[in-house]
């Protein structure tokens, strides 16, 4: 009797969990459904939950109305370059903070961490003026350069490097291995999980940037996906099925990355925050 009650409680909880998953994902699922509806069906009242008749043409139409392929390319170049850059600068700095005992190491580390306290809004206007002064408006360097260093990533990699047995370093020194070779041939391969965490985190957050690309890019062909989306919405008559098709296309890369690297995303978001 008691066992039966416990089982039915478990089933009820399972049902609740499925229902909540549908509620949380509803806006996204509904957007996907809408991307396959015809214009007539989108404006129909009452709204349909799922397409009555599947209309695949919205994707092609969205690609014709806005150069989404070009936006995707721009975003891939920006996010890829920022990711590689952050991996490089963070690995170098993380190495210095964990393997080289230099005078002023502690204050230098605090200087790095202090950059986390500066909200982007405070540096926004001067950075815009700097980038404009160099003549970088509407270029890739403007989208990439300000994000090439990361205190968070440096911290993450330093923590990881510190967990690697010290004997490895001592043995390498005895064998006459230089610092650079030790970092490149021994530490970096060992640190692959931490590098993956930082890389996925960097790619996701760069891909989803909105304000900075909006400021430094105003030519059509240099736009990134997030800002470029607005073109679909600013048509004379907004076609929601077209907008949703565009959204599905620009969200797909981060969704794939999120599903493939879920563990890393979680580790990146919680690193040093919760267990302190």
């Amino acid at each position: 009797m008691r066992k039966a009650r416990r089982i039915s409680a478990a089933v009820a909880l399972d049902a609740l969990m499925v229902a909540l998953a549908i509620v949380v994902l509803f806006p996204l699922l509904y957007a996907i459904g809408t991307s396959f509806k015809s214009d007539a069906e989108v404006n129909q009242y009452p709204p349909t939950l799922w397409p009555q008749r599947w209309e695949f043409g919205n994707y092609g139409a969205a690609l014709r109305v806005a150069p989404i392929a070009r936006f995707l390319l721009n975003s891939f170049i920006q996010s890829g370059a920022v990711t590689l850059g952050q991996l490089a600068t963070a690995a170098l700095a993380g190495f210095a903070f964990s393997y080289i005992e230099f005078p002023g190491r502690q204050p230098m580390f605090f200087l790095f961490l202090s950059t986390l306290m500066v909200p982007a809004e405070v540096t926004l206007i001067p950075n815009y003026l700097t980038v404009r002064g160099i003549g970088w408006l509407n270029t890739y360097p403007a989208l990439v350069a300000p994000f090439l260093a990361t205190a968070f990533g440096t911290f993450l990699l330093r923590q990881f490097f510190l967990t690697i047995p010290r004997e490895l370093w001592d043995a390498a020194l005895i064998d006459g291995c230089s610092r650079r070779r030790f970092l490149v041939t021994i530490l970096v391969p060992l640190a692959r999980p931490a590098l993956a965490t930082l890389g996925i985190y960097a790619f996701l957050s760069t891909w989803n940037q909105y304000l900075w690309p909006l400021l430094v890019i105003n030519s059509q062909e240099m736009r990134t996906v997030q800002v470029g989306l607005a073109i679909l919405q600013s048509q004379e008559i907004v076609s929601w099925s077209l907008v949703m098709a565009g959204i599905v296309m620009i969200v797909a890369p981060t969704v794939i990355l999120f599903l493939a690297g879920y563990r890393h995303v979680v580790r990146g978001l919680t690193a040093g925050a919760v267990k302190g």
Binding site: L20, P27, Y30, L229, M244, V251, T254, L257, V265
Partner: peptide, 19 residues
């Protein structure tokens, strides 16, 4: 599923909600 919105950008979220 519960943490899925991490993958969605603010621009995409705003447009979906506008709809």
């Amino acid at each position: 599923a519960y943490s899925f919105t991490i993958a969605v950008s603010i621009a995409a979220a705003a447009l979906i909600w506008e709809w």
